[in-house]
Amino acid sequence: MTRLLFVHAHPDDETLATGVAILHHVERGDDVHVLTCTLGEEGEVIPAALAHLEGADGDPLAEHRRGELAGATSTLGVTSHLLGAADAGGRPAYRDSGMVGSAAFAHDRAFAGADLDEVAAEVRATVEAIGPDVVVTYDEQGGYGHPDHIRVHDAVRRALAQMPSAPPLFVTHTPRSWAVEDRVWLASHLPSGTGYAVPSPNDPYPPSVVDDDLVTHAVVDPSVVERQQEALRAHETQVVVGEGWFALSNNIASRLPGREGYALLDPTTGALVQSEGPAGRRPGLVGDDA
């Protein structure tokens, strides 16, 4: 049995970014853990009935999203952890920073503004307590540039670099050819009249989409998509879920293709580690995967 730790910034990131790998390893009988660093206080609420939670005094959205995270991680079948000690009121140590330049970014508990050594020490303590064989998080640009995602990447790297016997670190990357295929699929499968936009082939891709040869590992398991969709539905404030696709508050559809790409990263140098042996993408995140 392999033990894996997935480190994420906000509730819903675990299912959106790494849900296929998580479910694949749960189905294998592996011991899977998710560490979430904030409660996503700055999330944009989609359902009108819950709009009053967004930006309200006292951060009621945080507690609502704590419940969403519990529902999603229960569906995924993982052990859930929250980074940092809670205060007397149950608030976690760090708060969603929002985007650079927002009022939230200057908040005294903003995760992106927290001391990196402090955050890395918290991450290291969690890694040492869980003892994973593999750690997974975002690439150096946090997938799409969110400052909290970048802070997670930097903190995980620093934590592992300081450990004498650190587990391997994988980061999320999508092969460009997959991203192109996903947009073609959306154009032909998204029902008309949904109100959700489909990116065109010429629209820019997020930074996590990279040249195919940089993606050295892949988890391909379409059988888990139904459960991934179920877990995403738990994040009702943030995600609209269709059959094989989802949309966030920007109303742009994305595919749930049942596959995820990864690359092994050297936590000390930040360089991608090329696979040894025959050329080609390796299946899964551990050596005995198939």
Rank of each mutant, 00 (worst) to 15 (best):
R109P: 00
H8Q: 09
G113V: 03
R3L: 01
G280A: 08
E42T: 14
D182H: 09
N250R: 03
D13V: 01
T216G: 12
F170Q: 13
S97D: 04
L82A: 01
T15K: 00
G98F: 01
E42A: 12
V123W: 02
T216I: 10
V224R: 02
L16C: 06
S177D: 08
P206M: 09
L232D: 03
L76C: 07
R66W: 09
G71Q: 03
E230T: 15
D133E: 09
N251K: 09
D154I: 00
D288Q: 14
V32L: 10
I130A: 03
A48K: 01
G89A: 12
D289F: 03
E236Q: 13
D108F: 02
Q238D: 15
E260Q: 09
G242M: 13
V220H: 15
Q162E: 15
H217L: 03
P201N: 11
T73I: 04
A247G: 04
T38V: 06
D213I: 13
A48N: 01
V156N: 05
A88F: 08
D139K: 02
V152L: 03
G77Q: 08
I252V: 15
A21Q: 05
G261D: 07
C37S: 15
A85C: 00
L4T: 06
V134R: 07
E122F: 06
T2N: 13
E118L: 10
L248G: 12
G98W: 01
A263T: 14
C37K: 02
R233W: 06
P92I: 05
E118C: 09
P175A: 11
L256A: 14
V127Q: 04
G67H: 12
H153K: 03
A103D: 14
D213H: 15
S192T: 12
E14N: 02
E226M: 10
P132T: 07
Y196K: 13
P132Y: 10
S102G: 10
V273I: 15
V180T: 14
L69S: 05
S177H: 08
G258I: 01
V45P: 00
A17D: 11
H8L: 00
A56K: 05
R227K: 14
R281D: 04
T126M: 09
N250A: 10
E243F: 12
H189R: 15
D57G: 15
E122M: 06
G40H: 03
H153S: 04
R124T: 12
L23P: 10
G244C: 09
E118K: 07
D12R: 00
P11I: 02
F170I: 06
D288N: 14
G43Q: 04
G142M: 01
F170R: 08
H173Y: 14
W245D: 07
P175Y: 14
P147T: 06
T126C: 11
H81D: 06
D139M: 03
H64G: 02
A290L: 14
D12K: 00
V20D: 05
E276H: 09
P132M: 11
A218M: 14
T137S: 11
G90N: 07
A85E: 11
L190Q: 09
V134S: 03
A62P: 01
L39P: 00
G40V: 05
E118D: 12
D12N: 03
A48W: 00
P201C: 11
Q229A: 15
A161F: 12
A121I: 05
E68I: 03
S188T: 14
E63I: 02
A253D: 04
G84Y: 02
A121T: 13
V45M: 02
